[in-house]
């Protein structure tokens, strides 16, 4: 594989199982390409550390650091012994110029991030708090695969805190709206999940509010 190019050995860093690569809010100035081992990406929300993703060799993470000096948005920890190539903005072009495959991988990652961020932005532009919270469910449902055209019910393994996080609202503002949705029987809240009865009902609700 190209990534094992000896010319990149000088960028290699090894971590032991359980080591932290970075935590949320830390300033970020480098991004990583996994050569060996797995990296767990997590985020602490509502007093619980949630695993967002477990990344495999060949995957890239921390890529926002190439673009801007922004704080990290999640934690990264070595699941086992991990070897990564660590790059910063200065040596980024060297890497990309010589490695169209890595560049292509990054290009794909960017397209996905642009889409996700645009969708997230759309949610946040809704002034109506109810519509915004409903749209969080719509957004999450778009990344789920649907089985069968007639089933409009959806299950999300998320909590009220997660919904608040996605909606960019405090939990105090989010909870009453969720309760209202429950009393309208639009959703049901369980300790480990939230179910939506009819996702199209929420979509119509959002689009009727979006027009205003």
């Amino acid at each position: 594989m190209l990534m094992n190019n000896p010319a990149f050995e000088r960028f290699a860093v090894t971590y032991q199982k359980g080591d932290i690569l970075f935590v949320e809010y830390e300033p970020g100035d480098s991004f990583y390409l996994i050569q060996e081992g797995q990296v767990r990406i997590s985020k602490i929300m509502g007093g619980i550390e949630k695993t967002i993703d477990v990344l495999q060799p060949g995957e890239i993470f921390g890529e926002m650091a190439i673009l801007e000096e922004a704080p990290r948005s999640a934690n990264a920890m070595a699941v086992d012994k991990v070897k990564v190539l660590q790059f910063n903005r200065a040596n980024f072009e060297i890497l990309m110029g010589g490695n169209p495959q890595i560049a292509l991988k990054l290009l794909k990652l960017f397209t996905k991030r642009i889409f996700d961020q645009r969708r997230r932005f759309q949610v946040l532009t809704l002034d109506d708090v109810q519509a915004r919270i409903a749209d969080v469910f719509c957004m999450l449902s778009e990344t789920q695969s649907t089985d069968g055209p007639l089933t409009e019910g959806r299950v999300f393994y998320i909590t009220a805190e997660d919904v608040a996080h996605w909606a960019g609202l405090s939990i105090d503002k989010t909870q009453p709206v969720l309760n209202q949705f429950v009393s309208q029987r639009r959703i049901e809240i369980f300790p480990d999940r939230i179910t939506v009865k009819n996702i199209h009902d929420l979509q119509r609700f959002v689009s009727s509010r979006r027009r205003g």
């Binding site: 926002m64 190439i66 673009l67 801007e68 922004a70 072009e93 990309m96 110029g97 169209p100 560049a103 292509l104 990054l106 290009l107 960017f110 397209t111 991030r113 642009i114 961020q117 645009r118 997230r120 932005f121 946040l124």
Partner: peptide
């Protein structure tokens, strides 16, 4: 690819900034 990366990264930076 590098040219596209530049275009996409500036789009990403802009939308990311808006979200923030």
């Amino acid at each position: 690819i590098l040219k596209m990366l530049k275009v996409f990264s500036s789009q990403l930076r802009r939308i990311h900034q808006k979200v923030r």
